[in-house]
Every structure is written in structure tokens, then in C-alpha cells.
């Protein structure tokens, strides 16, 4: 029983890997796009950036860097979501649904695949931390990877929740532009919470990605003196960990619920 589940998860995961490597444009795009983003926006806004109070010396390139890490994770989740929608449109998913496999296992396999890709791409991007002025020590690098795994699972879960309901990729693009990208913009990835009007701050504080963002910043500065106040938001690390974990579990549970509905044919 357990062996079968492991085998099923493994084969779903393995397929995600295979498909990723067989689409070279996806590999290159996934790594290059965020880097281009970071360089263009980072250099463009570097001059006009006023760093949050605690760090008068922080450049925008450095401030924006963790935000781009989050963007890398978000893009990977989005790619996996699109491939799930394609799977359904082409009929591949039906073949999975008639197999003796639980919807929970399907979602687990998909999320692990997507998270692995997110980690791989994130790790490549972490190599550039030095150029942003962030000195990564081993502890910081490892905790960053750990945090990326949690966030990656959450974003994949969110993406799959949407994907299992979507008929077309066009519909998904609308959701992406209306919800996912704005959530990223309002997470403290792009600009600090300090200095925005208070109603705006509330929106940011209600955004789960804000806590993912804070956790990521804390992890990148783990063990360095900047650590405590590096997080842009009002939150402390404990709150961030709790909110991020709850968000990940919640997103995963939603994706399983959607998959279960599809598997039982209710949607048909």
C-alpha cells in the first residue's frame, strides 16, 4: 500500500522533471526571466530608492533581490499550473484519474514536482546573491532553501487549486494578472511596507505572500547582524513561519479538494 503510494508519487514527480528538461525554452526562460527582471528594475530604480529606516546603506538591488527569489517561485508554480491545464485539455489527466490513485496522491506528486523545479531554479538564482550585496553563509543558504520549499509547496498548491477548475489557459492568464502578480507586488517584494498609506498597509498585511516574503528575507540574512530587521513588514519571524505554514497547508488542502471533485466526476 505504502509502496504503491511512493511509486505513484515518484512517477508523477519524475514526469514533471522529464517534461521540464525536454522543453529547453522553459528551462532557459525560468532562470533568465527573473534575472532580467531583477537587473532592469533593480538598476532602474536603484537611484530613487529610499531604504527602510534600519538600513541606510541598502541598495535597491539588494532590497529587490529576495523579491525576485519569490518571483522565481511564483513563476515555477505558474508554469506547473499551465501544464496541468494542458494535461486536462489534451486528455492526459483522464488516464491518471481512472487509475487506482487517490486525488491526494496526485496533488502531492504534482506539488513535489513543481516545488523541486522551484528549488532548482531558486538555487541557481541564489548564486547571484553576492552581486546583490548579500553574503550568504551556509546556514543562511540552507534555511533559504528550506523556506523556498515551504513557499514553493504553497504556491504550487495555489496554482493547482486554480488549474483543477480551469478549462483553458486563457482563463488562467486572467487570474494570473488579476490575482497572482498583484499579490506578489503587494508582498513587500517590490517596495517596503514602511512609507505606504495605512489603508494600503492593511492590504499588504492581509496578503499571505507578505509573510512568505518576510520569511525569505529573514532566511537570507540568517546569522548576520542585519537579520532581525531585514524583514520589510511588521511581522516577526515566528508569525511569518506560522502564517506561511498555514497558507501552504491551506493551499494544498484546497488543491486536493478540487482534484477530488474532478475525480468523482461532480464537475462533469
Amino acid at each position: 500500500m505504502i509502496r504503491t503510494v511512493v511509486l505513484q508519487v515518484w512517477s508523477l514527480w519524475w514526469r514533471e522533471m522529464k517534461r521540464f528538461w525536454r522543453q529547453p525554452s522553459r528551462v532557459v526562460g525560468a532562470v533568465l526571466q527573473p534575472i532580467v527582471f531583477w537587473l532592469l528594475l533593480g538598476m532602474g530604480l536603484n537611484g530613487s530608492f529610499r531604504p527602510p529606516g534600519a538600513f541606510p546603506t541598502m541598495t535597491y538591488m539588494e532590497y529587490f533581490y529576495p523579491g525576485v527569489v519569490l518571483l522565481v517561485l511564483l513563476f515555477t508554480a505558474i508554469f506547473s499550473t499551465i501544464s496541468t491545464i494542458e494535461d486536462r485539455r489534451q486528455g492526459f489527466l483522464q488516464g491518471v484519474l481512472v487509475a487506482p490513485i487517490s486525488p491526494l496522491v496526485i496533488v502531492l506528486g504534482q506539488c513535489l514536482g513543481s516545488t523541486t523545479l522551484a528549488l532548482l531554479e531558486g538555487a541557481v538564482f541564489l548564486l547571484l546573491a553576492g552581486t546583490a550585496g548579500i553574503k550568504l553563509n551556509l546556514v543562511a543558504a540552507l534555511s533559504t532553501l528550506g523556506v523556498m520549499a515551504i513557499i514553493g509547496m504553497g504556491l504550487s498548491g495555489l496554482g493547482l487549486t486554480i488549474a483543477w477548475r480551469m478549462e483553458s489557459t486563457q482563463g488562467f492568464h486572467a487570474i494570473m494578472n488579476l490575482i497572482l502578480i498583484p499579490s506578489w507586488l503587494l508582498s513587500g517584494a517590490f517596495f517596503p511596507v514602511a512609507g505606504v498609506p495605512s489603508w494600503f498597509r492593511w492590504i499588504m498585511q492581509g496578503n499571505p505572500l507578505t509573510y512568505d516574503m518576510g520569511l525569505l528575507r529573514s532566511a537570507l540574512y540568517m546569522g548576520s547582524s542585519k537579520m532581525v530587521s531585514a524583514s520589510s513588514g511588521p511581522e516577526n519571524i515566528t508569525v511569518s513561519i506560522i502564517v506561511a505554514a498555514i497558507f501552504t497547508l491551506f493551499a494544498f488542502a484546497c488543491a486536493v479538494t478540487m482534484a477530488r471533485r474532478e475525480a468523482s466526476g461532480v464537475r462533469a
Binding site: R19, R22, G91, Q94, G95
Partner: peptide
């Protein structure tokens, strides 16, 4: 299935 359920990649 009537539609292909194999992964063409």
C-alpha cells in the same frame, strides 16, 4: 480514451 491519454513529450 477517444482523446489521446499518453504524454507526447
Amino acid at each position: 480514451f477517444q482523446n489521446s491519454a499518453v504524454d507526447t513529450k
